[in-house]
Design a protein around this nucleic acid. Structure first.
Lengths: 142, 142
DNA sequence: ATGTATGCAAAACATTTGCACCTGG
DNA sequence: CCAGGTGCAAATGTTTTGCATACAT
């Protein structure tokens, strides 16, 4: 049962936590802001305060259940951590986010950190571009 | 003369702009927040409003004179663009920032963007870790 | 002159926190 | 029952904006 993940994180299994985790698991949109989560819950008639959303997401992050990203746009986005690390490509026009993992880059990063005398904890690689999706409003070639 | 860069950006050569550009050129700390710039100017008895600092930095960014980074910490940092692209390693303990450029990573990024049907505009790669600097407070091995 | 820039204060956001009340174990 | 969790509203920190004044060209 999913709630085990909450329990394992040392957190009580409360309604808000369960609902938020559920939402992260089921949402089509994998990268959501706190505000997004709050609104999606409201849409489902779940009356959970925005402050609680922030608190829970932060706790989930500390527990390793979700990852927080600082994409451009002034607000953080959260994503369920499915164990497999990956990086992101973000479309500057339509906001679409795709994921990728590249062994070559991962390896070089580790080497570079070492070369600079750093012990690598984490890293964030985001490619910003324009997608070729026919639905993307910025289709016209720049 | 430096001010040409401001003029070329289509901006009037005003005291705040000149002072801010100068500061970015001369500062030891290459990655500064708007607040940092504001305080440094105050220290030099330059009475420039914080709002102006934000406006000028944003204009400089639009003009390609500076680059804005969203490191962790809730505020953006700006850096003078010296023409040569590079990425960053940030020490999570002491905040030290080092720069690097790796041709292999750059090349793979371009390929990956293409594979995903994106036209790459830009990218942001930040390695977070712990430096081995003897002065770094987090010296104790994690 | 005159269109821009600036400074200030207020507004707008994203996020956090204090506190009284509620709830899970 | 009781520690921990929640909701609300207020506080915080960053960045933006409105507007009257000041300045570069």
């Amino acid at each position: 049962m999913d709630n085990q993940e909450i329990r394992k994180a040392g957190l009580k299994v409360t309604l808000p936590r369960v609902k938020i985790l559920e939402l992260l698991e089921k949402s089509q949109q994998r990268h959501v802001s706190a505000e997004d989560v709050y609104r999606m819950l409201l849409d489902k008639d779940e009356e959970i305060g925005l402050a609680t959303v922030y608190r829970v997401l932060t706790q989930f992050e500390a527990a390793g259940l979700v990852t927080r990203h600082n994409f451009e746009g002034g607000h953080a986005v959260f994503e369920l951590d499915r164990g497999e690390h990956h990086d992101h490509i973000v479309c500057m026009t339509c906001g679409k986010v795709e994921e990728f993992m590249d062994a070559t880059i991962e390896k070089r990063q580790r080497e570079i950190a070492e070369e600079h005398g750093f012990e690598m904890d984490d890293h964030s690689l985001i490619i910003y571009g324009r997608c070729q999706d026919p639905k993307c409003p910025g289709r016209a070639k720049g």
